[in-house]
């Protein structure tokens, strides 16, 4: 049986979708509104983000978010009319997600 590789992408996309649905509004509320309102102190933020587990969580969240976005972007581009370029679009999308994740790792462990 010729197996489609889609289960791999779809499961990562789904994992990202679940995590983002649960925490993305809260994160945006915190970093987009509470931080500029100076309700979040530097010392506290720094203490959290230098924890090894927090660094790993940042990279994990970035990975799932970027793969989720790459998957959606890829399928939307195909659906709205670029079906003929489905292969290259998928390759570029997922590679971009991996590159952004590498950058996230540099940031998180910087």
């Amino acid at each position: 049986m010729r197996r489609s590789p889609e289960p791999v992408f779809w499961s990562l996309f789904s994992a990202g979708g679940v995590v983002l649905a649960l925490i993305a509004p809260a994160l945006i509320l915190a970093t987009g509104f509470l931080v500029p309102a100076e309700r979040v102190e530097f010392d506290r933020l720094s203490a959290i983000l230098t924890q090894p587990l927090a660094r790993i969580a940042v990279v994990g969240l970035a990975f799932l978010t970027f793969v989720h976005a790459a998957h959606r972007l890829r399928h939307t581009l195909v659906d709205v009319g670029l079906r003929a370029y489905g292969g290259p679009i998928a390759t570029v999308s997922y590679l971009a997600a991996l590159a952004l994740t590498a950058w996230a790792a540099l940031v998180a462990f910087g």
């Binding site: 970093t31 970035a62 976005a69």
Partner: peptide
Amino acid sequence: GVVLAAYMVLLL
């Protein structure tokens, strides 16, 4: 989903 990736860049 794509917009949330843009936010992820801001968060990083």
